[in-house]
Design a protein around this nucleic acid. Sequence first.
DNA 1: CGAGGGCTTGAATCCTGTCAACAGACGTGG
DNA 2: CCACGTCTGTTGACAGGATTCAAGCCCTCG
Lengths: 253, 253
Amino acid sequence: MNPHKVISFETIRVVCKNCTLATLCLPMGLTPEDTERLDMIVKRNRPLHRGDYLFRSGERFRSLYVVKTGSVKTYAPSEEGGEQVLGFHLPGEIIGLDAIEKDHHICSARVLETSAICEIPFTRLEELTCCIPSLQHQMYRLLSKEIGHDTDMLLLLGKRNAEERLATFLVSLSRRLQRRGLSPNDFYLSMSRHEIGNYLGLAVETVSRIFTRFQDEGLLQVDRKHVQLTDLAALEAIVKGSQAEGDDRQHSS
Amino acid sequence: MNPHKVISFETIRVVCKNCTLATLCLPMGLTPEDTERLDMIVKRNRPLHRGDYLFRSGERFRSLYVVKTGSVKTYAPSEEGGEQVLGFHLPGEIIGLDAIEKDHHICSARVLETSAICEIPFTRLEELTCCIPSLQHQMYRLLSKEIGHDTDMLLLLGKRNAEERLATFLVSLSRRLQRRGLSPNDFYLSMSRHEIGNYLGLAVETVSRIFTRFQDEGLLQVDRKHVQLTDLAALEAIVKGSQAEGDDRQHSS
DNA sequence: CGAGGGCTTGAATCCTGTCAACAGACGTGG
DNA sequence: CCACGTCTGTTGACAGGATTCAAGCCCTCG
């Protein structure tokens, strides 16, 4: 066997394990054999490029997807060509959990930049989770986590003003990048201002204004897509502070 | 055996089956034996009254809850005594799915009126879903459905104005009541204006104003907690119409 | 080099929150 | 049974924040 080919194959394999399996197995005590079985059903597709679809709204649901590198946005398209951005997905994050119920996708997913995505055929995964209780539990946790995340977003959109929304967005991005070993305060946005605004329920102009305001206040440096968070603590204070005041007092009966 | 007691016991049992099991087994082809096994682990507690807790934020996660009759609100309390209402739960709906991930509750749940609630110990349920693939699939669907629902709320809070939010709230309520065989256009609200506003991200005053506005326009009749939707179609038009315009056009690259 | 899209900035408008006052329902206790 | 206080809900006036409309800049790409 060609040694070069072997190395390359193993490299891909290891990268995938670090990512897909970390997402699915996280703190669970899967045996090496079980990990291997899970690894076996994961498909590695060729890299996708900006604008490529992972899936489109209405398509039959077949697989879950895990971002290996790059980034993906999910959005609900409307008839008129408008859209509602539902989320931005960074490496290590899973996509498609909302499609299980109706057995077809209720949103579309497109990659924002050249990305490597792992595909996990869901029926295969289900067969596995039936045999591996700890994997099943991990699946429940993943789904539950997604609900918890949406709950956070609910809070964000329901009660936060523009500054608090953008600050939350940036801090969230920062933390997620850090978790993947990337710089938490110096990164490039793969999405446009328009998409950020759409996601946060704000007009493009507002997003732009808040960015400049934050820059004037010395919280960050922004040059087009390039963002440097110079005062992460201050941004976190905006997020935190608003969490307390945001909701109105309501005295229990 | 006392015939009276037998009847009473069986009645409770049937009612529970119609509710809890309908939620969990919905269209799945569970065998009678499997249904029986599921039924065995469901606890029927005594009725709860307004203000009673199902669970509090921070408590260890043990069970899922299914509303049999009455209604429940879930909310995330903050240190200052404020709260963010996360949802209102009507008969047939399940509560607690967001607690699986962290193994403790991240929100509190209190009943809004005298209610009967079924309790399903989660570890018992997990053991069952391991043995019954169709039940496992149903659990995935339930969790996935919750995500889909949150997605809808995201859309609501991100892009809708006050009228659209309240209209959506009322139409949603109407449909869910109808699904349970109750009147879709004549019902009593078990939650206060304050709670509605909190849930929809609006001030109490705004909720009140929109109610009167809707009444002036002949869409509904409202007298305190009593609501009659006299023009459900118009309300649905407000919901639908906004879904199309709400999101801004965004041309794909 | 020109066209177009993404981004920024300014001015005006509108919606919604805040503050404030009040009416009605409810519960308690005299 | 009524007085009282409390809580909920309604309504009005006002201010502030975000959207909308409009214009212009800069970068990218054909």
